[in-house]
Simulated assay, not measured.
Amino acid sequence: MMRTFSTVGGQIEQIEKPAPGSWICLSEPTDVELATVSEACDIDLADLRAPLDDEERSRVDVEDNYTMIIVDIPTVEERGGRDWYETIPLSIIIVDDIIITVCMQDTPVLHPFMEGTIRGFNTFMKSRFILQILYRNATMYLRYLRIIDRESDKLELKLRHSMQNREILMLLELSKTLVYFTTSLKSNEIVMEKLNTLSRIRQYPDDQDLLDDVIIENKQAIEMANIYSGVLANMTDAFASVVSNNLNNVMRVFTIISITLSIPTLIFSMYGMNFQEGMLGMPFTGHAWGFAIVIVISLLVSVLVTWFLTRSRMFK
């Protein structure tokens, strides 16, 4: 989808055709839209297609008539009724009088710009627009990191009484997300450092302060991702041991039950079909209450064995 915006009278408006100082937003673009922008703005079609590859790395490319900046942005993907977080590339291309963004999805990172809710946003100020996108991107990382932290807290409560692998696998999925976030944030940090020395992009007086804020927010996101990643790794190991310990407790109960039931089974199997009067060497065979006495004795022995096993150090 191709949309064009421009700041008119201090307000962001969607226009029909690109004009000087406008912003072309390509979200899930078709081949026709890419070819149209490539021909109209004299941009290499391969560069326009670059962010459509989810493995594209963050970088800054300076060409003869345009500059391309690719950064990784966070995105939400629904799988199995749950939200999972990944990163995808976003390309920002600066031509002489037009700025172009290309992304494989309609990302929420750009929605506030389209809605005009970003303070001080103006499509004519290309360098500030780039920094505002990067700042918005860093804040989105921080927001998703806080959501991941809350999700891990919920999983922790479930894991306290769980013996299933589902919660452990969800923790591993969150850990994988944090690895993606950390890698992407570090790549974005390199891009920001290069922007600080890029002379082609003219900066306004307040842009340096905004760039410093972007770098600070990005570093904070990196630190949070590293902290949460370490916490999740330790939590995964700890609760894997908890699940194993819970399983051992269940096996302990089953073992005690199995040993207890083996006592009457052993006694009854010795008597078997031989519980009859006159049977030599078989106690109580000649007694009128012999069968009842054998049952009572087996029950008493079973209770005694159960009491002993429940207090034995081997089963604690």
Rank of each mutant, 00 (worst) to 15 (best):
F5M: 04
T7Q: 13
G10K: 02
E13I: 02
Q14T: 12
Q14N: 13
I15A: 09
P18W: 04
G21K: 01
G21A: 01
C25M: 08
S27I: 01
E28I: 02
T36H: 14
V37R: 01
A46N: 13
D47H: 11
L48W: 14
R49T: 03
A50N: 14
L52K: 00
D54R: 07
D54M: 01
E55T: 11
S58W: 11
Y66C: 06
Y66E: 09
M68N: 02
M68S: 06
V71H: 03
D72Q: 10
I73A: 03
E77T: 05
R79N: 15
G80T: 13
W84H: 15
W84D: 15
I100M: 11
C103A: 15
P108T: 04
V109A: 07
H111L: 12
E115K: 09
G116T: 03
G116W: 02
I118L: 10
I118S: 05
R119F: 07
F124Y: 06
M125K: 08
K126V: 05
Q132V: 07
N137Q: 04
A138S: 14
L142E: 12
I147A: 05
E151Y: 00
E151F: 00
E151P: 00
D153Q: 10
L157C: 07
K158V: 05
K158I: 05
L159M: 09
R160M: 09
S162C: 09
S162D: 12
M163L: 07
Q164P: 02
Q164F: 07
R166C: 01
I168N: 01
E173K: 00
L174A: 12
S175M: 08
K176C: 04
T177H: 00
L178K: 05
L178Q: 08
Y180L: 11
Y180T: 06
S184M: 11
S184Y: 09
M192T: 12
K194R: 15
N196M: 12
S199M: 14
R200P: 01
R200C: 04
R202E: 08
Q208T: 13
D209M: 14
I216E: 15
I216R: 04
E217Q: 09
N218G: 13
E223H: 04
E223W: 01
M224F: 10
M224L: 12
G230W: 00
V231R: 03
N234R: 04
M235W: 04
M235S: 10
M235R: 03
S241K: 06
V242Y: 13
V243A: 05
N245P: 04
N245F: 06
N246D: 07
N248K: 03
N249V: 13
N249F: 10
N249G: 12
R252N: 00
T255R: 09
S258F: 12
G272Y: 11
F275Q: 10
E277M: 08
M282Y: 13
M282N: 09
I293M: 14
V296F: 15
L299S: 09
S302V: 04
V303Q: 11
L304M: 15
V305G: 03
F308V: 08
L309S: 10
T310F: 02
R311L: 05
R311T: 07
R313M: 02
